[in-house]
């Protein structure tokens, strides 16, 4: 079986981002970029399935600037067999190419590569949309197993435990399917130095949106981007008695 793992280059999760002073977007100059953390979980799951002998090939795919090749190399250092970059110079500060266009692009890649299923992050931590996996599944007419915390790959079906608001839900979905990862699916490994070196020699194809006949024109235009309202925190109390007094008489919340 062959699995496709879409990955995204996003602002590193430890970075405290800054809004541009003209409110047009988010400052990405000199900001550390990494693979979106949910995508690291997706790659890890694919690699574990390959190690368990359940799949034979892992293809990592990304849509983004030339520099997103680094993200593909990271995926290959962890265990992806090859990479595909759909290169675009679309601005990336508010999430980059929109989820619907990403889903259409991935569908075109699926039609070329015929994977048996797809594992991808449930959301990227830049625009926090949480849409692409569900959209891709819809466009392909496949089943979907979103927010997965457990995945059991069977014969023609997958059993997926999903993190839902009230607890956990288990569903059985027909393959082919799109599975999106939640935080507790696994703990991604670090790439070893020899594997990082080896990844540099793995095949990496670069395509253009035109090659796939996909229209990247955004449907949403950004009117403004602002800083959130600052909280005036930093107040301290000396002890429990003072805390209770303040909550009762100042904040009036108890």
């Amino acid at each position: 079986m062959k699995v496709l793992v879409p990955v995204k280059r996003a602002v590193d999760y430890n970075v405290k981002i800054r809004v541009k002073s003209d409110n047009s977007g988010v400052e990405l100059n000199n900001v550390k970029m990494s693979m979106n953390p949910f995508d690291e979980i997706a790659i890890e799951e694919a690699v574990k399935l390959k190690e368990a002998g359940k799949i034979t090939e892992i293809i990592a795919v990304t849509i983004g600037p030339d520099k997103a090749q680094e993200t593909l190399r990271t995926a290959m250092a962890v265990g992806a067999d090859r990479g595909i970059l759909v290169e675009t110079d679309a601005p990336t500060d508010i999430g980059g190419v929109e989820p619907l266009a990403v889903a259409k692009t991935l569908k075109a890649i699926v039609e070329k590569e015929s994977p048996d299923f797809i594992i991808m992050g449930k959301q990227s931590i830049d625009d926090d949309s949480n849409q692409t996996g569900q959209m891709l599944s819809a466009l392909l007419g496949w089943s979907q197993g979103t927010f997965a915390s457990e995945l059991d790959l069977g014969d023609g079906v997958a059993t997926v435990t999903r993190e839902i608001d009230g607890g956990l839900e288990t569903i059985e979905i027909k393959l082919p399917a799109v599975i999106t990862t939640d935080l507790r699916l696994n703990e991604p490994r670090y790439a070893s130095l020899p594997n990082i070196m080896k990844a540099k020699k793995k095949p990496l194809d670069v395509m253009k949106p035109e090659d796939l006949e996909i229209d990247f024109t955004p449907r949403l235009s950004v009117v403004s981007v602002k800083e959130p309202e600052e909280r005036k925190g930093g107040g301290k109390v000396a002890d429990i008695d003072e805390l209770i007094e303040k909550l009762k008489n100042e904040a009036k919340v108890i």
């Binding site: 989820p99 619907l100 959209m135 979103t146």
Partner: peptide, 23 residues
Amino acid sequence: ASTFGKNVMPRAAALLDIQQISD
């Protein structure tokens, strides 16, 4: 924008060729 809405709505949006606005 609960796990229910997040699971269902993008699927409907893609079938309608609409770019969803989340959350």
